[in-house]
Design a protein around this nucleic acid. Structure first.
Lengths: 401, 401
DNA sequence: CAGACTACATTTAGTGCTTATATTTATTCC
DNA sequence: GGAATAAATATAAGCACTAAATGTAGTCTG
C-alpha cells in the first residue's frame, strides 16, 4: 500500500483544464462577444469543450451569456448560437500616478477603460510621506466615488512613482532621499482595503501603456523615455517588460558619462536652463525672464515654433541631447522604437523630429522609430491601470470575482 | 454529425504527457542516475507515471536502465530500485569558434563535456569566405575523427562569429564588410551533413558559457564582455539570453560617445596602442618596440606586474576604460555581474581589480561583481557547445536519437 | 535456511479531461 | 407545415493521470 504523493504538482488533467480556461478567457478579455464556433477556431478545442469552459467561466462571473444570439452574427439560418461576452465590469482596477507635485488616480474596468479620474495638486513643495499617502488615498476614494465603484469590487491597484522600485515595492533610501520620499512604503497603502497593490517605477508604467497601445508589435523591443525633469526609461524587450529585482532597469545615471549629454537632467529642465543662460548672456529673444526662474519649457518650445532664434537654438541643442540618449538606449539593446513620453511630450514634436536626423550620425539603425507618445501626461496612469488589469488577470482563475 | 476540429492544438492529454516527459528528461539531463522514488520527489508525479515515462524515454534512447540497482543507493533493505541514467552519448554536438585568425572546433556529448578539440590557425591575413568555410569544415571533421564520433550521430552544430547575427543566421553587410567576411553564409555549412546548425555572435556564446558555469545564479542578469580587439557584450537578463531579431544586442558602438572611452576598441588593442605611444614619447620603460608593431598586450601586462611604471600607467588607463564600459552596461540594465571574457581575459586580472574600484566613482552598485572569466580563450567554443546542446534539447521529444 | 520485513515494481480500478460521433433543438426558407 | 441549416446536447470512447491493492527481489533475523 502506497500513500506516496497525493498533491499532483501541476501536471494533472486539472492543469489542462486551467490552461484551456485561460485560453478562452484571454481571448474574450480583449475580443468581442463570441460564439462557441468562433472560440473553437481561436483555441483549437472542440465544441463540447469550449461550451463546458464557457459555462464554467460564466458561473464564476467572468463571462456572461448574451441573449440576442443571432443579432451580431453574420448568418441567418440554423439554430442561433449561444454568445458569451467578457464581463468587463466584474471587477475594477485603480491606477495611480504619484508624481512629485501632484497625484492622479484613475478607475477603470477590466478592459482598461477609464471610468473616472481625479487629480490632486499638492500646491506646495516638501510633501512628507504621510501627506503623500493620504493625498493618494483621497484621490483614489474620490475617483471610486465618481465612478460609482464600491471598494469591495476593486481587484487591484497599481501606483507609479518617480523612483526605482524593487521586487518588494520598496525604493532605495540612503543614496538619494528623494526616492524614499517619493515612495513612502506605498505598497502597504491598499492593505487595509484588502486590495492587491503594486508599486512600480513610472517609466516602467509608461512602457506598459505603450505596450498596450500597439498590440500589433507584440514582441518588439522599445523604451518609453520619460524626459521631463530627469531622463528615465522603461524597457520592453521582445514584448517583455524588463523588471529587475532591484528595480534599477532603465536608470539613466550613465548619462553623466556621455559626451554632449553630461547628466540625467531631462529636456524640460534643460530647456529652462538653456533659455535662462541665453537671456543672461543678453541674447536677443522674445523670451522674458519675468516668471520666477525664467520661462517654462513649454514657452521655449512655443517661441521656437514662432521663429525665435534663441529658442530655436535651444531646441537644436536639446535635439542633440535626445539623439544621444536614444543612441545610448537603442544601440546596445537593438531597439525597434523609442517612445518619448511624459507630461511635456506633446510639446516635444519639434525636438524629436530634429533628433531623428541626428541619430544617424552616431548609430546605423534605420529601422529605429523615435516617436512622441500620444498619451502625454496620461502615460503613467494609463500604464498603472493596465498593470493592475494584468495583476487581476494573472490570478483570474484562482478566484471568482 | 460534426467533423469540426480534429487537430487538437496543443491542449490534448498528449500535451500533458509531453510536458511530464520533459520534466523527467530535464531532471536527468543535468542530474545523476535516479530511481523512480527520486524522480517522484523531483516531478511531483506518481510512481506509476514516472516509471511509464522512464520506460518510454528509455525506448526512445534518451535514458538507459542501469543494472546495479542498489550500489549507488543509500539504502540496503527492500527490493532494489530500478535506476535510469541519462545517455549523454546518445548524440553529440559540435561547437565552433570562428575567429578572425583561427578556427577552433570542439566535439562534446549531450552533457557538454568535450571529447575532442581541434584548432587551425589561418596563418595569413585576408581570409576569404570560401577558405573560411573549408577551414571550419576541416577543423570539425578532424575533431569528430579525434572523438570517434561518426557524422550521423551529430545532433547539432553552433558556430560563433565576431559579428552581429540576425535570427536567420545572417550578418549585416553593406555598412561593415568585416562582418559579412566573418560570416560567409555559415548557416548553410551543415546542411549537406543534415545537422541542425546555428550561427551566433561570439559574445552571446561567451554569455551562454558563463550561464552554464553558474547554474546557481539561474535567473541573474549579467554581461559577458569580450574585450580583446573590440568590445562586445553578450547579455543575459534574468537568466534569459537577450537575442534580438537583428542580432544587434550587445553591440558597443555607443562607446564612441562615452567620455574617457571614445571608441569600441578593446583592451588588448588599447594596451598595444598606449604602450607604443609611450615608447614614441621616449618614456623610460622595459618595454621594447622591437616586435613589429610594438609590444603585445600580454607583454604590457607582464611588464606592469614586474613594476614597470609606464606599463602600470597603461594598466591604470585601461582600468578606467573598463570601469566606464562596465558602468555603461550595468547602469541601465541593473546587472548583477560582468564577466570579462575572451582570449586576453587571463591577463586582465590586474586591470579588472583596478577597474572594480573605479566603478563606484560613476555608479552606485555595490552588488555588482566584475570578474575575469575562468574560461579564457575557450569561452566562445564552450558556449557554442552548450548552445548546441540546448538546440538538441529543445527538440528532444520530437525525435528519438 | 525459513520466514519476516522492506522498499520497491506491477496491476487494476477509477477519475477527469478531452475528442468523436450521434441526436436533438431552434430557426429560416420554401 | 416540412426541408434545410447550424448550432446545442448527449453518449461513447480514449488518454493520462492517481490511488490502492498486489506481486517481487532482495536483506535481516532467529
Amino acid at each position: 500500500m502506497e500513500a506516496e504523493h497525493t498533491r499532483s504538482g501541476q501536471s494533472s488533467p486539472q492543469y489542462l483544464r486551467r490552461m484551456n480556461a485561460r485560453k478562452v478567457l484571454d481571448h474574450m478579455w480583449h475580443g468581442r462577444p463570441a460564439t462557441a464556433t468562433e472560440l473553437m477556431a481561436a483555441t483549437g478545442l472542440t465544441r463540447s469543450t469550449v461550451l463546458a469552459l464557457c459555462r464554467n467561466l460564466a458561473e464564476q462571473g467572468w463571462l456572461e451569456a448574451l441573449e440576442n444570439a443571432r443579432e451580431a452574427g453574420t448568418y441567418t439560418k440554423g439554430r442561433p448560437a449561444l454568445r458569451y461576452a467578457f464581463r468587463e465590469g466584474a471587477l475594477f482596477v485603480v491606477g495611480v500616478d504619484s508624481g512629485p507635485h501632484r497625484v492622479t488616480a484613475g478607475v477603470a474596468d477590466l478592459r482598461g477603460r477609464e471610468l473616472a479620474r481625479v487629480e490632486r495638486e499638492f500646491g506646495h513643495e516638501e510633501v512628507g510621506g504621510q501627506e503623500r499617502r493620504s493625498e493618494i488615498l483621497a484621490a483614489v476614494d474620490a475617483a471610486l466615488e465618481d465612478a460609482g465603484v464600491p471598494s469591495s469590487r476593486v481587484g487591484a491597484m497599481v501606483i507609479g512613482v518617480p523612483a526605482p522600485v524593487d521586487a518588494e515595492g520598496r525604493s532605495p533610501d540612503g543614496l538619494n532621499e528623494f526616492w524614499a520620499l517619493m515612495n513612502p512604503e506605498l505598497r502597504t497603502l491598499a492593505a487595509e482595503r484588502g486590495w492587491e497593490c503594486l508599486v512600480e517605477n513610472d517609466a516602467n508604467l509608461a512602457a506598459m501603456a505603450e505596450l498596450h497601445r500597439y498590440p500589433a508589435a507584440r514582441d518588439a523591443s522599445f523604451a518609453a523615455l520619460l524626459s521631463g525633469e530627469r531622463f528615465g526609461a522603461g524597457l520592453v524587450l521582445r514584448g517583455e517588460p524588463l523588471r529587475q529585482p532591484r528595480g534599477g532597469a532603465g536608470e539613466m545615471g550613465l548619462l553623466d558619462m556621455v559626451e554632449g549629454v553630461g547628466s540625467a537632467r531631462g529636456l524640460a529642465a534643460r530647456a529652462r536652463e538653456l533659455a535662462c543662460e541665453a537671456i543672461e548672456r543678453g541674447e536677443r529673444t522674445s523670451l522674458e525672464r519675468r516668471p520666477p526662474g525664467g520661462p517654462s519649457a513649454k514657452e521655449v518650445f512655443e517661441a521656437a515654433d514662432r521663429g525665435d532664434a534663441v529658442a530655436a537654438g535651444v531646441v537644436a541643442r536639446l535635439a542633440d541631447v535626445l539623439a544621444r540618449v536614444c543612441v545610448v538606449l537603442a544601440g546596445p539593446l537593438d531597439l525597434d522604437r523609442i517612445v518619448v513620453s511624459g507630461g511635456i511630450a506633446p510639446a516635444l514634436e519639434g525636438v524629436v523630429r530634429a533628433a531623428r536626423e541626428r541619430i544617424a550620425e552616431h548609430l546605423y539603425a534605420p529601422w529605429l522609430e523615435v516617436v512622441v507618445s500620444e498619451l502625454g501626461a496620461d502615460a503613467v496612469r494609463v500604464g498603472a491601470v493596465h498593470s493592475a488589469v494584468e495583476l487581476v488577470r494573472a490570478k483570474a482563475l484562482d478566484e471568482a470575482p
